[in-house]
Computed example of a mutant assay.
Amino acid sequence: MIGVHDVGGYHMGPIQTKDDVVFHEDWEGLTFALLLVSGVQGTWALDEFRHIIEQMPPAEYLETPYYIHWLESIEELCVRDGFVTRDELAARQQDIREGRALPAVTGEPDPEVVEKLREGTRGIAYVGLGARRPDQPQNFTVGDRVRAHVRAVPGHTRLPWFVWGKTGVIVAYSGTYPLADTVAHREGENPEPTYAVRFEGTDLWGPGAEPNTSVTMDLYESYMDVVTESAAA
């Protein structure tokens, strides 16, 4: 989807890093933990998480910090999956504004649930989700010259705008993975082969590109077509 989040390829100057602090406030660490805990439930995927962030109003997206984006998405996902309601969230927010304490938790947690969450969150944090699927037949090979589609889709896509319509060369097969475009909308995994594609700087930005610059990115097979000799001519 086209949005304010898709800023790759823009000339924005050097990236300015503030410091080496991971979490500047306690709520940021809690938000990170909430993502891991809710992800362990297995009812949603990161592509859906990303797409919800993409739908934030542009001004809000630009004016809010990174973990606010996460929190917006986590709330929406937990509402969708029935873990909490919007009314419950609003009521708790009002409690916080008025200084009311969180109700005391009664009873003991289920040890099996606690262990599941502990092992699951540790696995996601340190290993990842392991999304690779069994290899499928590949229609492209290393060395093929390909052209990325122009993909102005209303939904989620992992094809950044600055390579739309540009040509590159496949340098490696990267494995078969669930198609983010459908996973983001709960329309099935539809796994596809992916390839590492190198785009020369001059192909992306013209003769004014910095010399010897290239960008290599993994793209799904359905994101591109082979460029034939006649088409290249």
Rank of each mutant, 00 (worst) to 15 (best):
Y223V: 01
I52L: 15
G99T: 00
A180G: 15
S230Y: 08
G107I: 00
F83R: 07
G130A: 03
L36T: 04
Y126S: 08
F32Y: 13
L117K: 00
V142K: 03
V40C: 02
E54I: 05
P65W: 08
F49W: 15
V146N: 00
D19A: 06
M56Q: 06
H11T: 11
P134C: 10
V150I: 14
T216I: 13
M1H: 06
V215A: 07
H69W: 12
P193I: 02
H185K: 08
T213R: 07
H69V: 07
R145A: 13
L34R: 15
V153K: 01
A184K: 02
F83W: 14
D95I: 04
P154Y: 02
P134D: 10
S73C: 04
G143E: 07
T167V: 14
D218W: 12
P103L: 03
E115C: 05
R80T: 10
R186Q: 14
L159S: 04
G188E: 05
G120W: 06
F23S: 04
E28G: 07
S38K: 01
P65V: 08
E98D: 15
P103S: 03
A45G: 09
S38A: 09
V22Q: 09
T85P: 06
M12D: 11
T141K: 11
G175D: 03
R151W: 12
R145I: 13
T213F: 13
D81I: 02
P109R: 00
V4K: 05
R133W: 10
H5K: 05
A233V: 09
A152R: 09
T213S: 14
V153A: 08
Y61G: 04
G3K: 02
F162M: 11
K166L: 11
L30A: 09
V7M: 08
I2A: 10
P193W: 01
F199G: 00
I53C: 06
E54K: 11
R97Q: 10
G3V: 07
Y195C: 12
A131D: 15
A91G: 01
G123M: 08
T157V: 06
L219Y: 15
R147V: 15
D181M: 06
E192A: 10
V113W: 10
Y173G: 13
E48S: 05
E48V: 01
W44P: 00
Q138G: 15
F140Y: 08
E200L: 10
S222D: 03
R80H: 14
T106C: 05
I15V: 15
F162E: 06
V84Y: 01
L89I: 15
P154V: 05
E108N: 09
Q41T: 15
G128A: 02
R151E: 12
P154N: 00
R100I: 05
E189Q: 07
A180C: 07
T43Y: 13
I68Q: 10
R151K: 12
T121M: 14
N190I: 08
F23L: 09
D26G: 10
A180E: 09
L62G: 02
S73W: 03
R118I: 12
T157A: 05
V113H: 06
S73E: 03
T17V: 13
F83E: 13
V183P: 02
E108G: 02
T194K: 00
P137F: 04
Y67D: 07
A45D: 12
D144Y: 04
G9Y: 07
E187H: 14
V127A: 14
G99C: 08
L179W: 12
M56C: 04
P134Q: 04
L71W: 10
D87N: 14
